[in-house]
């Protein structure tokens, strides 16, 4: 858990530096926001450890969600501070680690046949396209746009 906290803090630092370069928010201004986000994550992880049954992702979403709803004391401050962190800036380090882990799968990837590569493209297209289409149809029926 301590190890995870340190890793979260480190990625937090990388993210606010990226947020600075990409979105012009100074790291000092972004600090409270990233501390809150790291805190939500840690609380979620602790809950996941002692009350399992739900993936950590669900616990973390739930904690962050509750802390930013109008029922939670100080929610306006929390919303304003977390808004200083651009969601794209937080995703960039994730994809950097993803890229650096790619090499380990290259050998197994080379062994795959062309059919499975084609089908994986079809599968990703299918899930994205059909979910989009179904959402769009419902919005159209409801006359939203």
């Amino acid at each position: 858990m301590i190890e995870k906290t340190k890793v979260l803090a480190l990625i937090g630092i990388i993210a606010i530096l990226g947020n600075w370069v990409g979105y012009g928010v100074s790291p000092i201004k972004a600090l409270p926001g990233i501390i809150l986000i790291v805190l939500f994550t840690i609380i979620g992880l602790v809950l996941n450890k002692y009350l399992p049954k739900m993936p950590a992702v669900v616990w973390i979403s739930l904690i962050a969600l509750i802390a930013t709803t109008p029922i939670f004391p100080g929610n306006e401050w929390i919303v304003a501070k977390t808004a200083d962190i651009n969601f794209m800036a937080l995703a960039t380090p994730i994809l950097a680690y993803a890229g650096l882990s790619l090499g380990k799968d290259i050998e197994s990837f080379k062994k795959l046949g062309w059919r499975i590569v084609v089908i994986s493209l079809v599968v990703y297209t299918g899930t994205f396209l059909f979910a989009t289409l179904f959402a769009e149809i419902v919005f159209k029926i409801q006359g939203r746009f």
Binding site: V57, S61, A64, A67, T82, I94
Partner: peptide
């Protein structure tokens, strides 16, 4: 997980 927390907020 950090990204998830941000989206949750």
């Amino acid at each position: 997980l950090l990204f998830v927390a941000k989206l949750g907020s």
